[in-house]
């Protein structure tokens, strides 16, 4: 059987809210090492990779590997019934066709359980190579959210260029043009307020803002976001979820004809 208990149920709620617009359905692949999800958006332009470690949960048991097919809008409906302070336990029998979610209030005086019907999803797993990136930028996730939201109101695509001067986001549209540059800035005392640019070589790539804006739905999960860029490769937008794991969004670039 599979059983995973998380005291901070709000994390699970935020996670599903972050994913549900981008991916309709996907498999929760559970094994003794944790829970993983890899899913593409409907247009196969971006990929979400979620990995939650077994030791990040208060309790984790998985007797045999399983792929649990989840419809994210439906999971979201159920998780909306959990309180923000609730502990959430996920449970499934081996080869089950449903996932049980149990919500316990912090003072244990309210317990509820919901069964989510599982789906059979044929999903292809893509191999994501480990690699060095030309530029890695860590910045406050709220800053990333603001930049992509602001630029989405001006244009459809963004040119992201990383140089020793900083990281620049540029767009243009009917109303005009916009440029936002962030400089390397380690002055703030709190690491989560710093902008750290690790540049091996200058790089410039163009991406669809619609997706970058969608990734920012993960902002409530983490104070810091990391962007990784290499010429002619997908950008990685990564949120560390405390000690529990990470969600990474990969977006294929726009390529000049």
């Amino acid at each position: 059987m599979f059983e995973a208990r998380i005291t901070q149920g709000a994390v699970l709620k935020k996670l599903v809210e972050a994913l549900k617009e981008l991916v309709t359905e996907g498999n929760f692949d559970v094994s003794s090492t944790g829970l993983q999800l890899q899913a593409m958006d409907s247009s196969h332009v971006c990929l979400v990779s979620l990995a939650l470690r077994e030791d990040g949960f208060e309790h984790f048991r998985c007797d045999r590997n399983m792929a649990m097919g989840i419809h994210f809008q439906n999971l979201s409906k159920i998780l909306k019934c959990a309180g923000n302070e609730d502990t959430i336990t996920l449970k499934a029998e081996d080869n089950a066709d449903q996932l049980t979610l149990m919500f316990e209030s912090s003072n244990q005086d309210r317990i509820s359980d919901f069964d989510l019907k599982l789906m059979s999803i044929e999903s292809e797993h893509l191999g994501i190579p480990d690699q060095e990136y030309s530029a890695e930028i860590k910045m406050p996730s709220s800053e990333y959210q603001r930049i992509v939201r602001d630029l989405t109101s001006i244009g459809d695509t963004v040119l992201i260029s990383a140089t020793k001067e900083g990281i620049k986001f540029s767009t243009s549209g009917d109303v005009g043009t916009a440029n936002v540059t962030l400089r390397h800035n380690t002055t703030p005392e709190k690491p989560e307020e710093q902008t750290i640019i690790d540049l091996k070589e200058p790089v410039a790539l163009t991406f669809a803002l619609r997706y970058l804006n969608n990734f920012a739905k993960a902002t409530p999960l983490a104070p810091v976001v990391k962007l990784s860029l290499t010429k002619d490769l997908p950008i990685v937008v990564e949120y560390q979820i405390g000690e529990l794991g990470a969600v990474k969004f990969y977006l294929a670039p726009k390529i000049d004809d």
Binding site: M40, V45, H125, L126, G127, K254, I255, D257
Partner: peptide, 14 residues
């Protein structure tokens, strides 16, 4: 103009 690439063009099937 620029063409939107598919993600599978970069990451092969496992």
């Amino acid at each position: 103009g620029a063409t939107q690439a598919k993600i599978s063009a970069f990451f092969g099937n496992k």
